[in-house]
């Protein structure tokens, strides 16, 4: 198997395991946009410590890993206008849809949630169309 695919499967397994721990131990769905959003708009302050601890792990472990094994390039575009627009869309969209790739994608699809499946279909279609338009038609990204 292609090395990148194998690493994808391995990394995905870790992602699923982390979500499984959060579900089985803490009893919560590990959705990144919900956990972050609840701190941002203060709607999730009742368990802010749990959210903050999760966020610290998510930030610190990749930071430590890259310190030890070197930085993996993110290849984020240098076009700040695109970055700002993208961040705004992701922030607004995930809060309105009540989930993102982790919550709707991993946690939703794995319990055959119709909402998770519908959300995943629509964000992949919208993302695919966006790449086609902005990369191949407009040449912005």
């Amino acid at each position: 198997m292609n090395h990148d695919w194998l690493m994808g499967l391995l990394g995905g397994g870790l992602i699923g395991t982390s979500a499984a721990i959060f579900l089985l131990v803490n009893g919560k769905i590990m959705g990144a946009s919900g956990l972050i959003g609840g701190l941002v708009d203060k709607s999730g302050m009742s368990n802010w410590q749990e959210r903050a601890a999760w966020l610290v792990g998510l930030f610190a472990v990749p930071a430590i890993m890259t310190l030890i094994w070197g930085v993996k390039p993110t290849n984020i575009t240098g076009n700040l206008a695109v970055i700002v627009a993208a961040g705004l869309f992701v922030g607004v969209g995930t809060r309105i849809a009540n989930g993102c790739t982790s919550g709707h994608g991993i946690c939703g699809i794995s319990r055959l949630s119709l909402r998770g499946i519908v959300a995943t279909v629509f964000y992949i279609l919208a993302g695919g169309l966006t790449v086609v338009i902005f990369k191949h038609v407009l040449g912005v990204i």
Partner: peptide
């Protein structure tokens, strides 16, 4: 759910 996911997908793609 649908509008939010479409907006998210646009940002994700960008």
């Amino acid at each position: 759910l649908i509008v939010g996911s479409v907006l998210f997908g646009i940002g994700w793609g960008l």
